[in-house]
Design a binder for these strands. Structure first.
Length: 627
DNA sequence: GTAGGGTTAG
C-alpha cells in the first residue's frame, strides 16, 4: 500500500487529487507528510504546502530547506528569507543547502544586514570553506555593492573555480570597475562560456562597445562557441551603435551554426533592426517568431513609434489586443508616444482612460508619456492634471510638462513650473532649457531667455547645444534685433547650422535687411547648395527693395545650377482620409470644405507652435496633385 | 554567474 501511495502521489498534479491523498495520509500514514509536502513544493503549490507544514510538529532541517529553495526559485524572496530565520530559530542544525537560496534571496531583496547575519552563521556552522556557499557569498556581496567583502571571500577560497571569478567579475561590472573586472578575467586559467559572456556584458553595460566586440572576437578565435546569451549581448551592442552590418553578421552566425533562436534572441535581433532604422526587417523577424511575449510585442510597437510610423504602432497594438495579449506599462508608453505624434485626440483619450482606470499612471514612464500625449493633443488641462497627480516625478516628467506648456503658448506657466522644479530640487538638463527657451521665444521674452541661456553654463554646468543657440537667434530675430542675432551667431562656440542661418535669413526678409540676408545666404549655399528656398528668398528680398538686377541674377544662378523648387504640400485628415494640396491649390474636389477646416487649424497650430508632419506614407493619399 | 522592450527636445 505504501508503494502504491508513493506512485499515486508522483502521478498526481491536480490540487483536488492531492487534497484527497492528503486526507488519506493524515488519517493513516502521517509519516508520509514530509514526502507529501516536498511533492507539493515540486509542483510549485507553495501555499497549500505551507498549510500542511504548519501542522507538522517537528519538521527537520531538510523540510525547511525545501521551502527555502522553493520560495527562492519562485522569486518569493521575502518568504525564503523568513523561512531561513525561522529554521535558525527552531532548530539547532542548518542544512548546508539552505544557505545558498537564502543568500541569493537576500541579494535580490538587497537585504544587506540579514545577508551578513547569514554569512556569520555560515562560519559558525563550519561551512566557511564550502566553495559552493563561498561563491553565493561573493554573489551576494557583489549584488549588494559591497565589493570589498566580495573580494575578501574570493581571496579566502583556496582552489578557485570559474564560477567564483564570474560572480566577482559581474560585481565589478555593475559598479563600473571595468579594469578590475578585466584584470580578473585575464587571471583566469580556465574560462567557461559564462566568463566570456560576463566580460562582454561588462564592457557593454559600461559603454565600451569596441572592447566588448574584441572579447567576442577572441572568444571565437579560441573556438569557444557563443551561446544565446552571447548573441543577445552582441546584438544589443549593434543596436546601441546602430551598426546594421555587424548585426547582420551576427544573424549569419546564428543561421550558419544553426544556433538556437529563442524568443529572447529573436527580440534582440528585432531590436537591432529597429535601432538601425530597418523597421520592415524588424517586422519580418517579428512575423516569423513562433511565439511572442509582451516584450516582443512592446519592442515592435516601440520600433514603429520610434521611427515615426505611429499609425502602424497603433495598428499593431490593436492586433496585440485582438490576440488577447495584455499590455503592460512598457507597451503603453510606446502607444502613448504614437498617439502624441499623431496628435490623435480620440485615440489618445481612449488609451488615457484605459491607463487611468487600471492605475498604470502611477508609473513614472507612463505618467510622463500620458501627460506629453495630452499636451501634444492640445489638452493642456488634462496634462496638468496627470502631472499633479504623479506621486513620483522625474526629470522627464518635468521636462514634458514645461515643454508642453511652452508649446501650447503658455510661456508664463512654463517658466513658473521651472521655478517649482528648482524648489523640488530636481536638476534641469539641456532638454529643460529647450522648453524654457521655446517659451521665451513665443512670449517675446528676450532678456529672460538670455538669462536662462547664460545660467545653463554658469549655474547648471550644461553646455548649450546648437538647438539652444537657435532659440536665442530666433528670440532676437522675432523682436527685430537682427544685428544682435548676427553678433550672437558670430560668437557661437560651435559651427552654426542651417536652422540658425535660415532663421536669420527669413528674419532678414521680414525686416528687409539685405546685408544680413546676403551673409546668411552665403553660408546657406555652402551648407545646403541644393535647397531652392534659399535662392528664392534672397531673390525676393532683392526684389522687395527694388534691386531687380540682383534678383534676376540669383534666379539665373539657380537655373545654371539646375536647382528646382520642390513643391511643398500640406495635408489634413478629414473623416479618416488624408488630403493633400499645394499652396493656392483650388483644384481639389473638396476644396471649400478643406479650406475652411485648414484655415481654422492653421491658426491653432501657429498659436501652439506646431509644424505639420510631412513624412506620411504615399498610398494613404486620397488625392495627389501631379504638378 | 551571463540575455530582450519604455517617456521629453532636435
Amino acid at each position: 500500500m505504501e508503494q502504491n501511495l508513493i506512485s499515486l502521489l508522483q502521478s498526481s498534479v491536480r490540487l483536488k487529487e492531492l487534497k484527497q491523498i492528503h486526507a488519506l495520509i493524515f488519517k493513516k500514514y502521517i509519516s508520509f507528510t514530509p514526502f507529501f509536502i516536498k511533492r507539493l513544493l515540486h509542483l510549485s503549490i507553495v501555499d497549500y504546502a505551507r498549510l500542511v507544514f504548519n501542522q507538522v510538529p517537528q519538521p527537520d532541517q531538510y523540510l525547511y530547506c525545501s521551502f527555502i529553495s522553493a520560495y527562492s526559485k519562485l522569486s518569493l524572496y521575502a518568504e525564503a528569507k523568513k523561512m531561513f530565520f525561522l529554521m535558525h530559530h527552531d532548530l539547532a542544525r542548518i542544512s548546508c543547502f539552505a544557505f545558498s537560496p537564502a543568500l541569493s534571496s537576500c541579494a535580490s531583496l538587497m537585504a544587506t544586514s540579514e545577508g551578513k547575519q547569514i554569512h556569520s552563521l555560515v562560519i559558525n556552522y563550519g561551512f566557511g570553506s564550502n566553495v559552493f556557499i563561498q561563491t553565493t557569498l561573493i554573489d551576494f556581496y557583489a549584488k549588494t555593492g559591497d565589493l570589498g567583502s566580495a573580494k575578501q571571500v574570493f581571496d579566502e577560497i583556496s582552489v578557485k573555480d570559474p564560477a567564483s571569478y564570474n560572480c566577482l567579475i559581474s560585481g565589478y561590472s555593475k559598479s563600473g570597475e571595468v579594469l578590475v573586472a578585466r584584470n580578473l578575467f585575464d587571471k583566469m586559467t580556465e574560462r567557461t562560456i559564462v566568463s566570456w559572456n560576463s566580460m562582454i556584458s561588462c564592457y557593454a553595460h559600461n559603454g565600451h562597445y569596441t572592447q566588448a566586440l574584441e572579447i567576442f572576437e577572441r572568444m571565437q578565435a579560441v573556438k569557444c562557441q557563443p551561446s544565446e546569451i552571447t548573441l543577445v549581448t552582441i546584438l544589443s551592442i549593434c543596436a546601441k551603435l546602430g551598426d546594421l552590418e555587424m548585426g547582420l553578421r551576427v544573424r549569419k552566425l546564428i543561421e550558419n551554426n544553426k544556433l538556437c533562436r529563442n524568443m529572447i534572441v529573436s527580440t534582440a535581433l528585432l531590436e537591432m533592426y529597429v535601432k538601425c532604422g530597418a523597421v520592415n526587417d524588424a517586422r519580418r523577424e517579428f512575423d516569423q517568431m513562433a511565439q511572442r511575449d509582451i516584450v516582443a510585442w512592446s519592442a515592435m510597437i516601440a520600433g514603429y513609434a520610434q521611427n515615426g510610423r505611429s499609425n502602424e504602432a497603433l495598428e499593431l497594438f490593436e492586433l496585440m489586443k485582438s490576440e488577447n495579449v495584455k499590455p503592460n506599462d512598457v507597451t503603453l508608453v510606446s502607444v502613448l508616444s504614437a498617439c502624441a505624434q499623431l496628435g490623435s485626440v480620440e485615440h489618445g483619450e481612449r488609451i488615457g482612460k484605459y491607463i487611468e482606470s487600471r492605475g498604470f499612471a502611477s508609473n513614472v514612464y507612463v505618467g510622463s508619456a500620458l501627460l506629453d500625449m495630452y499636451a501634444k493633443c492640445g489638452n493642456i488641462r488634462k496634462a496638468l492634471q496627470v502631472f499633479d497627480q504623479m506621486t513620483h516625478k522625474d526629470i522627464v516628467s518635468w521636462n514634458s510638462m514645461i515643454g508642453g506648456l511652452a508649446a501650447n503658448g503658455l510661456a508664463e506657466d512654463a517658466i513658473s513650473l521651472y521655478m517649482k522644479m528648482k524648489e523640488a530640487e530636481v536638476k534641469p538638463n539641456d532638454i529643460t532649457f529647450t522648453g524654457l527657451l521655446t517659451a521665451c521665444t513665443h512670449a517675446g521674452l528676450v532678456e529672460l531667455g538670455l538669462e536662462f541661456f547664460k545660467s545653463m553654463k554658469s549655474d547648471h554646468n550644461i553646455i548649450p547645444k546648437v538647438e539652444h543657440c537657435a532659440c536665442i537667434v530666433d528670440l532676437f530675430c522675432r523682436s527685430g534685433r537682427l544685428e544682435e542675432a548676427y553678433k550672437f551667431i558670430c560668437n557661437m562656440e560651435m559651427e552654426p547650422n542651417v536652422v540658425i542661418w535660415g532663421t536669420l535669413l527669413s528674419a532678414s526678409r521680414t525686416y528687409l535687411n539685405v546685408e544680413l540676408a546676403e551673409r546668411s545666404v552665403e553660408k546657406l549655399l555652402i551648407l545646403e547648395p541644393e535647397n531652392s528656398g534659399n535662392y528664392v528668398l534672397l531673390s525676393n528680398i532683392y526684389a522687395s527693395v527694388g534691386r531687380w538686377q540682383e534678383a534676376l541674377k540669383v534666379r539665373k544662378l539657380m537655373k545654371d545650377r539646375r536647382i528646382q523648387k520642390i513643391a511643398a504640400y500640406s495635408w489634413i485628415e478629414i473623416e479618416d482620409k488624408l488630403h493633400k494640396f499645394l499652396v493656392g491649390d483650388t483644384s481639389h474636389p473638396r476644396f471649400t470644405e478643406i479650406y475652411s477646416v485648414v484655415d481654422g487649424l492653421r491658426l491653432q497650430m501657429n498659436w501652439a507652435g506646431y509644424t505639420p508632419n510631412s513624412d506620411l506614407p504615399e498610398e494613404d493619399f486620397l488625392y495627389t496633385d501631379s504638378s
